[in-house]
Amino acid sequence: MKCEDMRNLLLTDYLDGELDAERRFQVEVHLKSCYQCKDFFAEVKTQIKNPLDNYEVKKVPDSIWLNIKERIEEQQARAFNISEKINSWLWGWKPALTLALTLIIFVGVFFINNVKISSKAIDKTDTTVYLVDNEEDVAGFGTNIENYFL
């Protein structure tokens, strides 16, 4: 393996322990014989890997959770208030609503019945008119040409 290919591995998979045993062995054999690559790898380790791996993560400030908790509780309270308002409105106006609904149903039924009765009357009138029209038609035998031949 060429030194250039070797350095690509040294900068990535070998440095990060992502190589399988066989390829790792190949790299190690190369490092033993090539001082330039060995020096390059030592530099990568001291300048990049070691400082970054020794970096200590920061402690999470307690205030973050307190703020999140407050926001969640606010959301929950808002959602609860909306459903409670709807409930209280419905229950508070229950007698009035019941009365209003009864009236609406009563008026509705009355109105529908009236409409049915008046539409039956119209049907009868239509039939009468139709029969009268037919009687007029019966007096003739169709068109003038038809009358001539008959």
């Binding site: 690509n8 900068l11 990535t12 998979d13 440095l15 530099e43 990568v44 300048q47 990049i48």
Partner: peptide
């Protein structure tokens, strides 16, 4: 991912070479 890591490390080595060197 591999390419990003490689280029980052190349850049860092170039920008911050070892003091002894």
């Amino acid at each position: 991912v591999r390419t990003h890591l490689k280029r980052s490390r190349e850049l860092l080595i170039k920008k911050f070479p070892r003091k002894e060197v």
